[in-house]
Design a protein around this nucleic acid. Sequence first.
DNA 1: GAAATTAAAGACTGTTTTATCCTTTATTTT
DNA 2: AAAATAAAGGATAAAACAGTCTTTAATTTC
Lengths: 146, 146
Amino acid sequence: MFSKACEYGIRAVIYIWSKSTHGVKLGVKDICKGIDAPEFFTAKILQSLAKQDLVSSTKGPNGGFYISKEQENMRLLALVEAIDGDKLFRGCGLGLKHCSEKHPCPIHDDYKNIRENLAKLLSEKTIKELAKEVTSGKATLTTIGV
Amino acid sequence: MFSKACEYGIRAVIYIWSKSTHGVKLGVKDICKGIDAPEFFTAKILQSLAKQDLVSSTKGPNGGFYISKEQENMRLLALVEAIDGDKLFRGCGLGLKHCSEKHPCPIHDDYKNIRENLAKLLSEKTIKELAKEVTSGKATLTTIGV
DNA sequence: GAAATTAAAGACTGTTTTATCCTTTATTTT
DNA sequence: AAAATAAAGGATAAAACAGTCTTTAATTTC
């Protein structure tokens, strides 16, 4: 469903949220340790997100990634689109180039429905909410205990 | 969502269904022309499906691919699983190795819901139904008119 | 039986995704 | 100013995915 990059990206951003409530910055190493993701690969994703202004970053000692005031209400949908683009939400389920209401593929309506449910879910969820689930212990971002 | 191989495979099987109601066999070339898919690549997919007994085939003149009596009630789910495996239906939305009810990722429940809807859709749809939509002109498998 | 036809099988190429490493740049601390 | 730190950026490598081509095997037609 989501690409690896997107999975790491989502986990990373939720992690940053869950740890840096009061302006504390987190380094890539910390983050990747916390979410059990490959360091340099995840760094690239975060850099891309920073470029797109979905997260903030500063270099130098005590620098790292953090979430600014303006980024506080980020939705999951924005994150997914920033990393994976909109291919998950646009385009035909069977790969037809010109699938439309008028010339639908055989699963057009059902697929559309699934997709809209997914888009709805992603657009409703804020990172803040998700982070809260982690800090409260209800959810986790890494393999624990087993 | 689905891989290219899966898209071509689904289209191919629906096409076979829609054209070979009375035991007529269709060659790969015909099929690929009919669904606007790359020939050799799609051939591989059909061969794999034949090996897995989801479609039937015979070699030689007037040979080709067809659907046997036993394959008549094939569900879309079986097709997708045969080509893409179950990765779409199993595994965590955020890629966690040990995500479970007990140790869920932050989107566990919602993702599970989406996934179950998808699985339900795919397990309910028969290829026969989908083919009927094509033969009746309600749906299409290729780019038309534009 | 020989020729023609068609799927099956395997080798090969190209692209995208995933991942790692190394260098550069910006920032802070001393 | 120098040293240390951390993100940014570039280069490379491995794996998965997508697609093509060639040869082989089975079947039918003649």
